[in-house]
Write a protein that binds this DNA or RNA. Structure first.
Length: 567
RNA sequence: GCGCUGUUAGCUCAAUUGGAUAGAGCAUCUGACUUCGGAUCAGAAGGUUAGAGGUUCAAGUCCUCUACGGCGCACCA
């Protein structure tokens, strides 16, 4: 319990006793303006509104009857019914000493942990990953880590697009070319070209379209030769994905393609028909719900083929039935909102017991403000983006660190480039569309990963110079405003992580870490550590610097950004 | 047409979910150091939160309307 939480507990016990009908809060939040205090509550205003009482009177009672924890100043009443609180430097120092001993840095696990499936990334077989995949991959990865840190059991799933109609066109062109060997180095590029060829041919020639359909049907009914081709496509694609995920350091617990559910699809549709959830309309099988949309949700085409939604229903059921998920979180582009409303609505009618969430993010747009699409335009390949990130980082490193050469230069460039990319992608709120520019995604100045990493490096450098291996535990003494402000800020870490997890919005954590780094830089200017005026102060500042470093590393780690000891 | 979503400083974004005087970065200008790592810090300037009404002690945030973007609306995923 650190600072806010201590005060929260006191205030809650008072509000529970005096105003039980208002719920349990939380009531205490940090002051936006430090002149008012460190923390504030506007509880009296809410209580007055609900009970018809007088806000200032309630504020007075709260201030007088509910004393803050020891070491806090007397609460002050302000405005129409705010109560402001201020912790003394001693109380702050004690809080930091406790936080320093807490291996979780103030992150409190859920009281009721859940098994949560996070479904993210989901690239398509036989296609290169491109910028359109980056947000789902990074957001899903971070959410999985956030939810796990909050005490849940998390299952990360990559739901690969390995069974769509694109395989008919791909097989058509591939087989027409005599099923050539796919080279190790650029198998994906070859596959993309075959697909493009098959697509063009079948779009311009109805007979070819029929052939493509036949290829797909043959594959789906288990023709051995086509099955074998398809397996090669999958294997080669997996190699490509593995390399990207290795560089991004993203992992999955399960990689299950859509093909996994192929056999279950007829049963799903029959089930829904039998339960009168679905009906036949114009030869197709559909689910209706006018409150969602006039148009129905299609789960079987009139030619008998199944769709995206059918596969998703089967996958959803499997996650509940086989993985015992309480909650499934789908991380995709916002354009799929309607699809997921239909999916969740149908799943509930189907009596699938669970909580389903669509965590969506804005579309990545090209410079023309139109979505970057994979078929028209030129989507930037993820490999190229990662390489460019590394190159730009290397240029800056060569300026700042001319002593670096060889492998250590390569390694640092890779780390810094990808760190910047990851941070830039996660820093804006997730429901904004964003226009893709190299400059924005690969910035190294201002609110960026290098700024935060530099603060971390400074914390490590101080400890190194002091001859200390691991961050120490010393009593905390706070003299300067900069160190007190930093200390109070560090104690908000747990609250911010909880907020980011609950909201499924990691950008809160980005903002917090940026502020933390800024406060540390200010502390660094204002408070000499190694040359501190007294040994007690030196020890205190060493401890504070160590703890700041630990929290920066922990927070960046949640965002999937590794730290480095020097840069 | 219906639905979803957005519009905040020149640009890119925040704002603890209805709280007090809307904050950062970039760009511009001015300062600080013979550095516990300058990939830093301090300061200046920059705003009718798209517009108009409404709800209330309090609105960038909620409601209504308008304008302008983006997206989605049966056999693609």
């Amino acid at each position: 319990m650190y600072l806010r939480a201590e005060l929260e507990a006191n205030v809650q016990s008072w509000t529970q006793k005096n105003f039980p009908s208002l719920g349990i809060g939380p009531w205490i939040r940090p002051c936006a303006d430090p002149r008012h205090g460190h923390f504030q509550t506007h509880f009296p205003l809410l209580a007055a509104k609900q009970t018809g009482g007088n806000a200032r009177e309630i504020a007075t009672r709260l201030a007088e009857e509910c004393s803050p924890p020891p070491g806090w100043e007397k609460p002050q009443i302000a405005g129409g019914g705010f109560v402001n609180y201020r912790a003394t430097p001693n109380a702050v120092a004690r809080g930091i000493e406790n936080l320093r001993k807490d291996k979780a840095f103030g992150i409190v696990p859920n009281e009721r942990p859940e098994t949560i499936v996070v479904d993210f990334s989901s690239p398509n077989i036989a296609k290169a990953m491109h910028v359109g995949h980056i947000r789902s991959t990074l957001l899903g990865d971070t959410l999985a880590r956030l939810l796990r840190r909050c005490g849940n059991q998390v299952i990360r799933i990559n739901h690969l697009g390995d069974w769509g109609t694109q395989f008919g066109k791909l097989l058509l062109a591939y087989r027409a070319a005599g099923r050539p060997e796919l080279s190790n180095s650029n198998a994906i590029q070859q596959l993309e070209e075959f697909y493009k060829l098959g697509h063009q041919e079948s779009e311009s020639d109805p007979a070819k379209m029929e052939l493509a359909r036949a290829e797909l049907a043959a594959l789906q009914s288990g023709d051995p030769e086509r099955k074998k081709d398809w397996e090669v496509f999958c294997e080669r694609s997996a190699e490509h994905f593995r390399e990207i995920y290795r560089r991004l350091n993203v992992t999955f617990d399960l990689e299950k393609g859509e093909s996994t559910y192929h056999e279950e699809l007829p049963g799903v549709v029959e089930d829904l028909l039998r339960l009168k959830i679905a009906e036949i309309s114009q030869g197709a099988v559909v689910v209706r719900n006018p409150s969602i949309s006039e148009e129905p949700f299609l789960i079987r085409k009139s030619d008998g083929a199944f769709l995206y939604g059918t596969t998703d229903l089967a996958a959803l059921r499997s996650r509940i039935r086989d993985l015992h998920a309480h909650r499934i979180i789908y991380v995709t582009d916002g354009r799929q909102q309607l699809h997921f409303r239909w999916l969740f609505d149908t799943a509930h009618k189907w009596n699938q017991q669970g909580v389903f969430e669509h965590v969506w993010f804005g579309t990545i747009l090209g410079s023309d403000r139109k979505p970057l699409k994979s078929r028209d335009g030129t989507p930037i390949k993820l490999v190229d983006l990662l390489d460019e990130a590394k190159d730009r980082a290397k240029k800056i490193l060569l300026e700042k660190r001319p002593d670096l050469t060889g492998q250590s230069l390569e390694d640092k460039a890779e780390l810094l480039g990808i760190a910047s990319l990851k941070y830039a992608d996660q820093m804006p709120g997730r429901n904004l569309d964003y226009v893709f520019t190299w400059e924005k995604l690969l910035a190294f100045d201002g609110n960026t990963a290098p700024y935060i990493l530099n603060a971390y490096v400074r914390t490590r450098s101080i400890l190194r110079k002091a001859g200390i291996e691991t961050p120490p535990y010393h009593p905390i003494v706070l003299k300067e405003p900069a160190e007190e402000e930093l200390s109070r800020h560090l104690m908000q870490y747990g609250d911010i992580v909880a907020l980011a997890a609950q909201d499924r919005r990691p950008h809160h954590l980005c903002g917090y870490l940026f502020e933390t780094a800024g406060m540390f830089h200010r502390f660094f200017e204002a408070c000499p550590v190694l040359q501190a005026p007294t040994p007690d102060l030196r020890n205190s500042r060493l401890t504070l610097a160590g703890l700041t470093g630990d929290i920066l590393r922990d927070g960046l780690g949640i965002l999937g950004i590794p730290t480095l000891e020097e840069m």
